[in-house]
Design a protein around this nucleic acid. Sequence first.
DNA 1: TTCAATGTTTAGAC
DNA 2: GGTCTAAACATTGA
Length: 298
Amino acid sequence: MPELPEVENLRLGLQRRILGQRVRSIAVRNPKLVSGRGNLRKASPKKTREFIRGLTGARILDVTRRAKNLVFHFSGGKRLVVHLKMSGQFVYKENGKNKVDGGHPIRISETVLPNPHTRLIFELGKGILYYNDTRMFGYLLYYPSEAHLDKAGHFRNLGLEPLDAAFTPAYFRGSLRARKARLKSVLMDQAVVTGLGNIYADEVCFLAKVRPNRRASSLSDKEIGRLHRAILVILPKAIAAGGSSVVSYRLADGSRGNYAREHKVYGRAGEKCFRCGSVLKKTAINNRTTVFCAKCQK
DNA sequence: TTCAATGTTTAGAC
DNA sequence: GGTCTAAACATTGA
């Protein structure tokens, strides 16, 4: 699943192509995805009806992002909040050609659309927007207004955006100090700072020379400063590079996201550290594979 | 064939 | 309340 840079990149691509278009029709192939966001959600015919009725005919005015969520703003104040989770992806086609795709990496075999993993189809004024999701952890939730979204508290548990000016070293220090959990868990905790996932958490720790399995509360001010700077260096770089994709993530113009080439530790267990040459170690933190250099990360 | 792993989140257990 | 595990589900590669 995409982390912040991949979601941001998808947002930019969509914004360039679908703004101003009206939704002509919607096919919801898997009602479960529009019926809630919990693990135990069930398909809801009522929510599916509201989703289709609410968005059909509406005009797309903006696409924004909060944490790893995409927020589509429609005429009439209507909102659509989308989380891609592990395997969600959007593909927008116009005149039979892919104009935007992103989220989970697109395989060549998946370029024929719709395919068995296509869960929703939005027919727009000029093209067709497909939502594909193999594992179906993702969700697309409709809110009749911004007020409904607020009332639902959809974003209530999210912390600061890392690229927001409010995300200062002092704030970061405050949230790390209080935590006994492992540093990597805290970095990935969306209530502390949003957007970091398994890849970027490892990359940030490597750049800051701190071991991901340290207790967050044990970090010195200096180390916290290095982590803060690492986040502010890595995320914009990854966004500019088009995000990371292990397979074939592509940008709006069809070129490939290539931040994966920049990965220093993720996916490199057993290979040599670019900094000191020693062999990178693999471990598990909260059930997530973690790669780090035991020599230059303290 | 079976099993572990996959970029996420969160309900529930302790 | 903080922390950690398992689960939601499908596919791939060892």
